[in-house]
Amino acid sequence: MYKLDEFKQLVEDFSGVADFLVIYIAEAHSTDGWAFTNNFDINRHRSLEDRLSAARILVEKEPLCPVVVDEMSDVTAIKYGALPERLYVLQAGKVVYKGAMGPWGYNPLEVRSFLEKMK
């Protein structure tokens, strides 16, 4: 949920010209793994129900767009190189913007600049 407020503002400002979707993937900083002291208490997902429960925590933060979960095989995270997080813009089914790997490369302001140019 790094920079969630920036992401929410992006959704709010561009929802008229773009559709937004969050795909919840494997927990990068699980409590029983490599966790930060101020993290949410989320263990490594051992089942789809674990992943769905973790995604509900994000949904409670109201990201202003749909939230779906990756399969337990992590097919989406692997295909898009998304672990721990990454921003993409797709147009007509093709990737037209691929952000750098998060958390440091997770940059909603960069996506904002990209979308402004597409208007």
Rank of each mutant, 00 (worst) to 15 (best):
F40C: 09
A26I: 02
D41I: 05
A54M: 08
D50S: 13
L87I: 13
I57E: 12
Y2K: 12
V67T: 04
W34Y: 05
D32V: 04
E116P: 01
Y88E: 07
V69C: 15
S30W: 00
T37S: 14
N107R: 14
L64N: 03
Y24F: 15
C65T: 05
F40N: 07
L48F: 08
V69G: 10
T76M: 14
A77D: 11
N43H: 13
G16V: 01
V22W: 03
L58H: 02
S47Q: 10
P84Q: 04
E6W: 02
V11H: 05
S53N: 15
S30K: 02
S53R: 15
N107I: 04
K8R: 13
I25A: 11
T76E: 08
M101Y: 07
L87Y: 12
E71V: 08
Q91P: 00
Q9S: 10
M118G: 02
Q91E: 15
N39V: 00
D13H: 01
D70Q: 07
V69M: 11
Y88S: 09
A18I: 02
K98L: 08
M1S: 08
T37C: 02
D74P: 00
P103T: 14
M101R: 13
T31K: 14
S30T: 00
Y24H: 14
I78E: 13
E116F: 05
P63N: 06
L10E: 00
L52C: 09
P103H: 12
E71L: 10
Y97R: 06
L115N: 03
E116H: 05
P108R: 03
E12H: 12
A28P: 01
A18Y: 06
L90R: 03
L64K: 13
L109Y: 06
G16M: 00
I42L: 14
F20C: 10
L83P: 00
Y80L: 15
K3L: 13
V68P: 05
E49L: 12
K119G: 06
K94Y: 02
G105T: 14
F20T: 09
G105I: 15
A82N: 07
G102E: 11
D41N: 07
Y106P: 12
V95K: 11
S15T: 04
T76I: 15
L48I: 14
N39S: 11
F114L: 01
S47H: 10
V96W: 08
V95W: 09
R51E: 05
F114H: 08
I78S: 12
S113F: 08
K8N: 01
M118E: 10
V68T: 09
A55R: 08
S47W: 01
M101F: 10
M118V: 07
A54C: 06
V69Q: 08
K79Y: 04
S73K: 07
M118Y: 05
K98I: 12
M118I: 06
K117Q: 15
I57T: 09
Y2N: 12
A18F: 08
D32K: 05
E27C: 05
I23N: 09
N107V: 10
Q91W: 06
